[in-house]
């Protein structure tokens, strides 16, 4: 039972550190907000890629959809969206604090649900694909979405969209978004921990290990796969709105459907930390994000080269991720536990 108590001590320590961080390091608040976003990216990707063995390269789709849906809801509550976007930022309407908060409070859940519904619809076709075919198929989704968003005038087409900007009178802007993103990550983490601890976790692990066997045993595999993708999409969609508002501008290719950066990072961070574990994506995202920030600071001009080299190093030296590496090196601390089994002879 010490393990359970250790867990709560760990959660408490992380919680205190996370709440104190924006006050202790006020100049790093934006970077720290992005750290939470990266952790969320890695965690939501790992539901599919790690726990269920479905490597999705299109999860960024749900983030971008969430970002646009939330912005449209936030604007649409008070103004005509088409007129707002056609002004293309030249005549930005202002939002009062209460308009902004109501917009975000409604926009976020609507965006999350829209993303989850979209995942269910797309999943009906795409979750029938297995292995590499699923990976390649999903890769197309993100690209497709970016092209569509870049051509749709209602949401600003290629010139992007300006979401309602953070109004005066609500305190510190970076701190506000920091705590919104922190809250989403906490909600996602405990939702996943709960899901993985029951039948759902066993079922998606079974699909990862042998989907044909799971079907032959009569498991409702499609149901589990759809829910898994829906949960992943929900949290990504939920985060889209606040991130759009935090950045202050939605570009279809570089912020909403940023497949070549965030879309790839979410995969790498989960692999770096260790696929299929609850802590792996958290650790991987943290190390990845901090390293990335350091590259920008100390290797400016070469940061993309260094990033590319890092990605190669991750895949070559940590194919099992940090958690996998720890389990191999220190099985007594991190390994799979064989409790109270008598020390009988192996075979």
């Amino acid at each position: 039972m010490t393990r359970v108590r250790n867990d709560y001590v760990l959660y408490g320590a992380i919680g205190v550190a996370a709440i104190a961080a924006p006050f202790v390091f006020p100049s790093f608040q934006i970077q720290l907000s992005f750290l939470w976003l990266m952790i969320l990216f890695a965690m939501t990707w790992d539901i599919m890629g790690g726990q269920m063995g479905y490597n999705s390269f299109g999860n960024i789709l749900y983030f971008g959809v969430g970002m646009y849906v939330s912005a449209v809801v936030q604007v649409g509550l008070f103004y005509d969206v088409a007129a707002y976007t056609s002004a293309a930022g030249a005549n930005i309407q202002s939002f009062t604090p209460s308009q902004f908060l109501w917009g975000l409070a409604l926009g976020m859940p609507v965006a999350g649900l829209a993303a989850a519904v979209l995942a269910a619809v797309l999943g009906a076709g795409m979750l029938g694909l297995r292995g590499h075919y699923f990976a390649i198929g999903t890769l197309g989704l993100g690209i497709l979405a970016a092209e569509l968003a870049g051509a749709w005038d209602y949401i600003g087409a290629g010139s992007g969209m300006v979401p309602p900007l953070f109004p005066d009178g609500l305190g510190s802007r970076p701190r506000f978004f920091y705590f919104v993103l922190f809250g989403i990550v906490v909600a996602a983490f405990f939702t996943l921990r709960w899901l993985y601890s029951g039948r759902f976790g066993l079922a998606i692990n079974a699909i990862r290990d042998d989907e044909d066997k799971a079907e032959a045993m009569g498991l409702h595999t499609r149901r589990y796969k759809t829910v898994a993708w829906g949960v992943s999409a929900f949290f990504l969609g939920l985060a889209g709105g606040p991130v759009g508002a935090m950045i202050g501008f939605i570009d279809p290719r570089d912020t909403a459907f940023a497949g070549t950066t965030w879309g790839v990072f979410m995969v790498l961070m989960a692999i770096l930390g260790g696929k299929g574990t609850i802590w792996g994506p958290v650790i991987g995202a943290t190390i990845f994000h901090v390293t990335q920030e350091l590259f920008w600071t100390f290797l400016l001009g070469w940061q993309r080269v260094a990033m590319g080299a890092l990605i190669v190093l991750i895949v070559v030296f940590f194919p099992q991720g940090i958690m996998g590496w720890l389990r191999e090196r220190m099985p007594e601390r991190f390994g799979h536990r064989v409790e109270d089994s008598p020390a009988g002879p192996g075979d």
Binding site: L202, N205, A206, D209, D210, K213, A216, M217, G218, L219
Partner: peptide, 20 residues
């Protein structure tokens, strides 16, 4: 043989409860 390789024997059994 087809079993769920990266799950324990007990977990393999737990997920095999009657789907009916």
């Amino acid at each position: 043989t087809r079993v769920y390789g990266r799950m324990t024997c007990v977990q393999n059994m737990q997920i095999s409860t009657p789907p009916r």
